[in-house]
Nucleic acid binder design. Structure first.
Lengths: 337, 337
DNA sequence: CTGTTAGCGCATTCAC
DNA sequence: GTGAATGCGCTAACAG
């Protein structure tokens, strides 16, 4: 391996000068600089990043800890983050926690031992990992879910408002008996979206009926069985609000399997888009989140946090957007209330 | 920061012994080992991975260089890779090349300077990056596309066969005038799938008509405009084979926009599944690739390559699977040939 | 089985 | 504006 010493010898300067030329952080005689660059080219020298990392006591890696890259929500988010990272000279390390606290802890540990420069994390339930990173002073942005009691930069969407808007839309369509499939109780987004559901009902003067609510696991299978369970009710719901994309798909698949269709048999609105929601027939109504933008914003915040460690934590809330498509068409039997 | 020396002092042994205890690579007196572990716990010591990397002259990072994580094909592949990496103690660095040789080169450079332990790459056209990594002796697996003339582990699917099967299926359905939207000429998968299309036509004794072929960019917009262009023909095709998932979506969207439907107006089979292809109505016929498995296999090969650098390069070909769904139903006007 | 020693490659003092 | 010297924290020789 050719080192900075080889370059120094070849160009007749000291290693320190080579370092200065290459980092460009200090004035160097243009004459020497030219010689150094020539030597670098001749030798095909490439700085050793690992040595630099050790010396500088930090790397140019960002970790993104999410539950599953196969969920299009996270995919797009990661894409937004990576674009910022790339521009700022960082690389993104992908960490699938699968909502498993142990896996999350393993990645948090890796962040610490590998001295990564920053973390973007969607915490899986417990706050332990975030707390540990916070205590260690690792620059961090929490995304998608909020953690109370820890001063940390956070990027969210207006979950409660978005959910309420979706449910209001169903109410406006003449539906009264509206079911809700939401996520696990330990995840803030599940709770916030459920809260929005309740808010919309209350505002419309419709009684909340807990028999119409299911907590599932934010996965396809969970949505499927929650749907099954709702259909088994003596009086199944006329409409349904589902709190994330994968569960919506599961619910729709359950309907298809039973020969039922949205919106004729049951109207459906899902939180978070799925790719090509308009190719589904009828097209799926959704509360769209600005997923790419979430990642981009998180990246920006992380960059700022690294640049200015002392500044107070900020909380950014992005707006969702209700996309009314076919699965939530108004009732035909009975006009709007 | 607490170092290995602090632990050594605290437990009354040498730093070397601490290192041995922690790496577990060497026998150490259980008594001392216990003392060391106690000291580690008391001090909250955490090894410095960067220093270890410098000393060992290698990291535990794998780079995965793909064109776009937002394409579900790559998403799933990355997921498979990450699962293997995680198990083997590696972390995956995500590198979106966007089919841009400059971006790819930048990531290749990062792999080299950061001394990453291995690379999984889907080369974007040119072989320069792969050649450079190969020359530098970086363990590597090429995925999805083949590069001739470089001895390198490769994981592919049977592109030509899969495409031929799809087109044969259309021919069996009574379609004769079959169009093809494939990818850029510099990408092997585009060529191989086009070759499969021609093979199937030849086998069935149907004349190849180059006016029915379009080369697009493997993206949604490309599929859309290629579809437009095919529809402008004096005699548009009765059926269509599209060589990747995003272009298939684009083509379908073009059809929808013009009030046309598959398979009534034009039958469609796409290469590579899209998520929830069965929620599209009618459900989309596809040549499904084992995407997760591709990533898993690549990970396995990379692990083996790192373990046994000398062994000859292997080429693994996985099978595709034709999923016949609604968009490719047989012609109604005219029976099977 | 354990301790001493050296050095991975670089960036940063500190003198000049 | 430049060079010499030092040490980041660890592990691998080597000697005992």
């Amino acid at each position: 391996m050719t080192t900075i010493y080889d370059v120094a010898r070849r160009s007749g300067v000291s290693p320190a000068t080579v370092s200065r030329v290459l980092s460009g952080r200090r004035n160097v005689d243009p004459e020497l600089s030219k010689k150094v660059r020539a030597a670098v080219a001749e030798l095909g020298y490439r700085p050793n990043g690992v040595a630099r990392n050790l010396r500088r006591a930090s790397t140019n890696l960002w970790a993104v800890v999410i539950s599953d890259i196969e969920n299009p929500f996270f995919t797009s988010l990661v894409r937004g983050l990576e674009d910022v990272a790339q521009t700022a000279g960082y690389s993104v390390v992908l960490c699938n926690s699968d909502e498993d606290p142990d896996k999350e802890a393993a990645y948090v540990s890796a962040v610490l031992t590998e001295q990564m420069a920053g973390v973007v994390i969607s915490p899986s339930g417990s706050a332990d990992g975030v707390q540990q990173l916070h205590d260690a002073g690792v620059p961090m942005v929490v995304i998608d879910r909020h953690l109370d009691g820890i001063e940390v930069d956070t990027v969210l969407v207006d979950n409660e408002h978005g959910a309420a808007e979706a449910v209001k839309h169903l109410l406006d369509g003449g539906y009264r008996r509206i079911g809700c499939i939401t996520g696990p109780r330990r995840v803030s987004t599940a709770l916030d979206r459920l809260a929005g559901y309740r808010t919309a009902l209350r505002t419309a003067g419709v009684r909340f009926d807990k028999d119409l609510v299911r907590h599932a696991d934010f996965r396809e299978a969970g949505g499927y069985s929650a749907m099954e369970s709702l259909l088994e009710l003596a009086e199944p719901p006329e409409a349904l609000f589902v709190a994330n994309n994968l569960m919506t798909v599961g619910a729709l698949e359950c309907l298809t399997a039973r020969g039922l269709r949205a919106p004729d048999d049951i109207a459906v609105v899902g939180f978070d888009d799925i790719p090509w929601a308009d190719l589904v027939v009828p097209p799926l109504s959704t509360v769209a989140q600005p997923t790419y933008e979430l990642g981009r914003t998180a990246g920006q915040l992380l960059k700022d946090r690294i640049g200015t460690p002392g500044r107070p934590a900020s909380m950014v809330t992005l707006r969702t957007e209700l996309h009314v498509r076919g699965t939530s068409s108004p009732r035909r039997s009975q006009s709007t209330a």
